[in-house]
Amino acid sequence: MLEVTGLHVAYGGIQAVRSITFHVNQGETVALIGANGAGKSSTLKAIARVIDAVGGDVHFCGEKISRIAPHDIIRKGIALVPEGRGVFPRLSVLENLEMGAYIRNATVEAKKDLKMVFDYFPRLKEREDQLAGTLSGGEQQMLAIGRALMSRPKMLLLDEPSMGLAPIMVQKIFEVVRAVAADGMTILLIEQNARLALQCSQRGYVMESGEISLHGDSAQLLDDPKVRAAYLGE
């Protein structure tokens, strides 16, 4: 479904991502793990066109998307949940979700999806009219994921959903990620919390200094002595 070939990202002279190639199949959850600064987030941002890649191609559903306008990525069916959540602080929770459905015109359909988001995250329903900036970090993460779902995407890109959250919140967020995946969503997940990411994905790629150093089934990676030593703290 998503094919990344030879993707290269640089900031000035600094090579963040060195020509990496990977793919995500339909219905799959794929984890991209690695240490801070390994290039995970840059990879995701380049796919979503938030930043320009220096080289390489990205194809989605057979169509080349690596040169289209940033605001058209979501129209192709890819929704990025950005690092640090990126909710609109002075819009209400409901307005944030409506922004998620910005590209859609069918209000009836969007209403149905709103109900789906509130089913995934009952907490958001309770806070519907509150300004998003007043939510806790975990609630903002819920909102960011809910907002992404409102565009009815074919694929979700999750950038560090556990970042800065209390363990109990992390658990809740990942329960929903699993539920969304179980409902058929294709997900590319970036995480520093490698154990968590591998536990809820089918396949994983390990990034190291801008390159993919290892890939395989998530269960295998969880057992891999190198991964265990470097990323699982064992």
Partner: peptide, 8 residues
């Protein structure tokens, strides 16, 4: 940046 992600 995020508004652009929403398709704006």
């Amino acid at each position: 940046a995020v508004a652009s992600l929403m398709g704006v």
